[in-house]
Structure formats: structure tokens, C-alpha cells
């Protein structure tokens, strides 16, 4: 079937969905919501854990930096899909109390959501950790020394001197990681989460209108992309320091 807009039947989006949830436009919208939901939850985990690990890697001493390095190497060298399956299939069976709670007390959708969010969160945290580390390092040893020389202890040096500037520097790379999480959320379709790519597959399977479905979803991903980038540019402008052009 040739890919001409004229040859495609766009009315299928207004037909009722097979699961009775409304028309197919709404069906895709549900997918869109779950994509955002799992991506944002994953991002919160990624930002918090990633910041901690990134800070660990820049601390003096040996134990914490090594822990940080181990974390990053483990989560960067196992494929995302494998990590997802480990969260969804292995963690509930192996981990004693939390695992049984996961298996028995949560409904399937929540299980898929939680596994997806945890997987995306911890996977992306490794990448965020690297950004945070490189942001802190780009400030040079002088800022840390200046903070210490004034009598700040290490937590104060990070909180007052290093992190406020480091985070400003890495806004562009953090944005790109957020976009990555949104794209990576598609792997959750493999465990049945009804995010956008899964909905597009279902739509195709039930109506055989694959091209329309895929085109709509591809456009939606593109729109999300552009929106996030625009917001990021505003955030960058808003937090910019007068006269300052990045680290030394």
C-alpha cells in the first residue's frame, strides 16, 4: 500500500475503540498520558538518584566515589530492555517482602507502571550522574577550595557553592536526558504497559490501519520533543547568570 495521505483512512480515529473506552483518538490519548506519567515518574527517580550518585563520584575519599562508579558501570552496561525484565520478572520473585507485595497487592497495570518507572529511573540515573559529575568538575577545583577556605563543610560546599552552578551548566544535557526517558518509555510496551507505542500497535492490530496509527503516534512523539525543547530553552534563559558563560 503506497504511503499517500490520500490513500489513508483518517476516519478510523473517530471510530469506537475495541475496548469500549471511546474512540481511537481517545485510545491514543490514554497512551500519551501513560507515556508522560511513566516518563515523569522515572525522571523524578533519575534526577534524585542521579544527583546523589554524581555527587558521590566527586567527593573526596574512596568509599563513596567507588560506590558511585559501580552504580554507573552496572546500569550503563546492561541493556534497558533487560533491566526492565529484571524489574518486572526477577525483582518480585527474589526480593523477600517488597517483591511479594509487588506481586500480590498491586493490580497488573500498576505493576507494569511501577516496573517501568523504576527501570527508567535507575537506568537514566546513571546518565544523569555522569552529567552532574561533569558539571561539578567543570567548575574547577578553585570553587571547592574557595568554599572550604571560608569554613564551609563538605555538604555546605556542595549545597551553596557547587550544585547551584553545576545544575545551571547542565540544563541542556539534562533536557536531552529527559527526552531520552520519554523515548525509552516505549520499551515498557513489552511488559504490556498501555503507553503510546503499545497503543499504536494495538490500534494497528485491531483496525489493520497500521500506517495511520504509526503516523499519528510518530507525530505525537515529535510534538512532545519540540515542546520539551522549547520549555528547556525558557528554563535556560530564566536561570542564566548575567555575564557568565559556563564553567572554566
Amino acid at each position: 500500500m503506497p504511503i499517500l495521505a490520500a490513500g489513508l483512512d483518517w476516519s478510523i480515529f473517530f471510530q469506537p475503540a475495541f475496548d469500549g473506552s471511546g474512540n481511537y483518538l481517545r485510545f491514543l490519548f490514554v497512551g500519551f498520558q501513560w507515556t508522560l506519567f511513566v516518563a515523569v515518574t522515572g525522571w523524578i527517580i533519575a534526577f534524585v538518584v542521579g544527583s546523589i550518585v554524581g555527587v558521590f563520584r566527586t567527593l573526596p575519599g574512596r568509599v563513596l566515589p567507588t560506590l558511585g562508579t559501580v552504580y554507573v558501570e552496572v546500569f550503563r552496561n546492561i541493556p534497558l530492555l533487560v533491566q526492565l525484565f529484571l524489574w518486572y520478572f526477577v525483582f518480585p520473585d527474589i526480593v523477600p517482602h517488597l517483591g511479594t507485595w509487588f506481586k500480590q497487592s498491586l493490580n497488573p497495570l500498576l505493576q507494569q507502571f511501577l516496573a517501568g518507572a523504576l527501570c527508567l529511573g535507575f537506568f537514566t540515573a546513571a546518565r544523569v550522574a555522569e552529567q552532574v559529575r561533569s558539571g561539578i568538575n567543570s567548575l574547577g577545583a578553585g570553587q571547592r577550595a574557595a568554599g572550604l577556605a571560608l569554613g564551609f563543610n563538605i555538604p555546605q560546599v556542595y549545597r551553596i557553592v557547587l550544585l547551584p552552578v553545576a545544575y545551571r551548566i547542565i540544563i541542556p544535557t539534562l533536557t536531552s536526558e529527559f527526552l531520552n526517558i520519554i523515548k525509552n518509555s516505549a520499551v515498557a510496551s513489552t511488559i504490556g504497559l498501555i503507553e503510546l507505542s503499545r497503543q499504536s500497535q494495538q490500534l494497528g492490530e485491531f483496525t489493520a490501519h497500521w500506517y495511520e496509527s504509526f503516523i499519528a503516534v510518530t507525530l505525537l512523539y515529535g510534538i512532545i520533543n519540540v515542546t520539551v525543547m522549547t520549555i528547556s530553552r525558557f528554563v535556560e534563559k530564566f536561570t542564566r547568570l548575567p555575564g557568565y558563560v559556563g564553567g572554566k
Binding site: 570553587q143 577550595a145 574557595a146 552552578v165 545551571r168 547568570l241 557568565y244 572554566k248
Partner: peptide
């Protein structure tokens, strides 16, 4: 806190 230090590259806090 009791000994002041001044650095070659000033090291003021830019933010």
C-alpha cells in the same frame, strides 16, 4: 573560618 584566603583566580561564587 578564622583564616582568610585569597586565590589567584578570585573564585567568587558566580551565582
Amino acid at each position: 573560618a578564622r583564616v582568610g584566603m585569597v586565590f589567584q583566580h578570585f573564585e567568587l561564587f558566580p551565582h
